[in-house]
Each structure stands twice: as structure tokens, then as C-alpha cells.
Computed example of a mutant assay.
Amino acid sequence: MPAKDAQTQTEGFSAEERAAMKKRAAELRAEGKKGAKKADGLQAVLDAIAGMAPEDRALAERVHVTVTATAPELTPKTWYGMPAYANADGKVVVFFQDSGKFKYRYSTLGFQEDA
């Protein structure tokens, strides 16, 4: 049998993926603090949208307006550094991933199964 080269397997997470995981860990720490408020989540979403490229920002702003107008019971928050909206249980049901996040060609509007 030929020996398998260990280098041909995956090399682990990319820099973008590691950065997203660090953002998620910071989000979880912030949620765990007493006194975390909806306003903090809304500001985090607005900051995430402001940091996007202009074409992605325009889409994200429209998604934000649409989701907040259509489903005001959803709470804005960030999820892996992306704008997201959670239900009353705190579970993300819809999120917006800009194309620059993981160097994708298109932006993504995603729904979790809790939706």
C-alpha cells in the first residue's frame, strides 16, 4: 500500500474562519454579561453593516429594514460577526452574510431551521 501524505489533507481553518470564530466567542462573552440589552445588539448589527463594502452594505441595509419592519419580535444581534436576527429564545433565525466575509462571489441571506 502506498503511504498517505499527511500534507494532502486539510490545513485547518482559514484566517477568515478563525476571525469569525473569535468574533463569535466575543459575542457569546458579551451575551453572558448581566445587563446586556437589545440596544447593544442593534448597535452591533449597525456597526457590522457599516463595515461592509458599499454594494453589500446597500443589500444589508435593505434586509435590516425589511426584517425589522416585517418581524419586529426578532431581536437584532451579530452572529459570527454577521448581522442576524434572533427569536425570543435567543436563537438566530435569519442572517445576512456579505460576499467579503469569506471571499464569496455573492452575498447570502440565510435562515436557520429554528425559523
Results as ranks from 00 to 15, higher is better:
A20Y: 07
P72H: 05
K22R: 11
R29M: 06
S14E: 07
L46P: 00
K77P: 02
K34P: 08
S14Y: 07
A69T: 08
A25W: 04
A60L: 02
K91Y: 14
G51Y: 03
V45E: 03
A69C: 00
D56K: 00
G100K: 10
K4W: 08
T75G: 02
A71P: 00
L109G: 07
K34L: 07
G81W: 14
T70R: 12
A88D: 15
Y104T: 11
Y85E: 03
P54T: 03
R29D: 12
Q97V: 14
F95K: 10
Y85V: 02
A58N: 01
E31C: 04
T108E: 08
D56V: 02
M1Q: 11
A44S: 05
R24S: 11
E73M: 06
K38H: 02
L109V: 15
P54K: 07
G35R: 10
A15E: 12
T108R: 08
M1N: 11
G51K: 03
M82R: 15
K22N: 09
T10P: 01
P76W: 02
R24K: 14
A25K: 14
A50L: 01
S99Q: 13
A84C: 13
T75A: 07
Q9V: 05
R62C: 00
K22Y: 03
A58F: 00
G35H: 09
A26F: 01
R29A: 14
F95C: 11
G110E: 13
M82P: 07
A26Q: 13
D56R: 01
Q9I: 03
K33H: 09
G12I: 02
A3L: 14
D40I: 01
K4S: 11
V93S: 08
E17H: 07
Q43V: 02
L28V: 12
G41Y: 06
A69Y: 00
Q112A: 15
D89F: 11
M21F: 13
A44H: 03
R18E: 09
G110H: 10
A71I: 06
R105H: 11
A88P: 04
H64G: 00
L46V: 00
E11H: 06
P2Y: 10
G51H: 03
V67A: 04
L59H: 02
A3H: 12
A6Q: 10
G100M: 05
K22G: 07
G32N: 15
A20D: 14
T78K: 10
A36N: 05
D98L: 02
E11F: 02
E55I: 00
T75D: 06
A15L: 06
A53I: 00
A19D: 13
A71V: 08
G32I: 06
Y80F: 15
A71S: 08
Q7K: 12
R18Y: 05
N87F: 09
K22H: 08
A60G: 02
G35N: 10
Q112K: 15
E11L: 05
A3V: 15
Y80K: 14
F13K: 14
G81P: 15
R57D: 01
A84R: 10
P72W: 05
E31S: 09
